[in-house]
Amino acid sequence: MTATTINFVRHGKVENPNHLLYERLPGFHLSDVGQRMAQATGRFIADSPQLNTSVAVFSSPLERTQETAQAILNPLNKVRESRGQEPLTIETDTRIIEARNEFRGTRIGYGDGALWRNGNWKLVRNLWKPSWGETYKEIAARVRDFAMEKVDQFAGQQIIVVSHESPIWSFRHMLEKGHPEHNMLLRKTALASVTSITFDSDTHEVLGIAYFDPAKDVH
């Protein structure tokens, strides 16, 4: 039996002084703290005898994930160079992008432009089945499509996938509980965290799920 591990990494903290729900909006980059978070996770991956054997790095197309992926790629490629291996590049895939949310551009909190104005709060009555955009089932389905493709493509190997909180947790919840619907307030997907999911390369059965939070002390 061979095993394939997909290491899902959530991006680091974003520069967002106006507290907007940025969703898929362009122009939202990692903050200084977010850069340090991504670098901490990059060091963690480069120092791990298992993770630093990863043979590919994928990212969603948004700036915050691309920047996190680059911070991971830099030390990882130094390890590869020391082994005489070719450097990796970032491969972009839209299936691991942030969830679609109709509240994009609104502000968290109160005042003009706030999420809770204009009756928007009525759409947030059920945290398990969002009614304000892409459903958890849709999110998990596209991530599963991506993951199963990569399990076949990289059988017996490890890869890094930089994505977002909702796609990572919805997919994990589906694998563990049999359904992707969940209370979004109970997610365990810290900024710049690593969720490693190992699959049987032949059957796609989940063999194990591990979670790491390398940037928890970064401020």
Rank of each mutant, 00 (worst) to 15 (best):
M37G: 13
R187P: 01
V162T: 07
E81F: 05
P26V: 05
G119S: 09
R172C: 10
I159P: 13
V151S: 05
Q66Y: 03
N16D: 15
L88R: 06
I72E: 06
Y22T: 07
T198V: 04
P61R: 05
P214T: 03
I159V: 12
N101G: 04
H219P: 01
E138A: 13
Y110L: 09
A38L: 09
T4K: 11
R144P: 00
A40E: 00
F199W: 12
D145N: 14
A40R: 00
F212Q: 04
S170V: 03
N16C: 14
E181I: 00
Y211L: 07
T195L: 15
G34R: 12
T5I: 08
W169R: 04
G119L: 04
T41W: 03
H173N: 10
H219C: 08
R95C: 02
W121Q: 09
G113A: 13
H164D: 08
R142C: 11
S170L: 02
I72H: 02
S163I: 06
R187Y: 05
N183I: 07
A46I: 13
G34T: 10
W116G: 01
V218C: 09
L25Y: 03
E86C: 02
A155Q: 05
L191N: 15
A114V: 09
E181C: 00
F171W: 15
W116I: 09
D32Y: 04
T53L: 13
R104E: 14
D93E: 14
G156P: 05
L51G: 06
Q153G: 01
P17C: 00
L62S: 14
Q70C: 03
T53S: 13
L175Y: 07
E165I: 07
G27T: 07
D93I: 09
S59C: 09
E86R: 11
S54K: 07
S201T: 14
L123E: 08
R144T: 00
A56C: 10
Y22L: 04
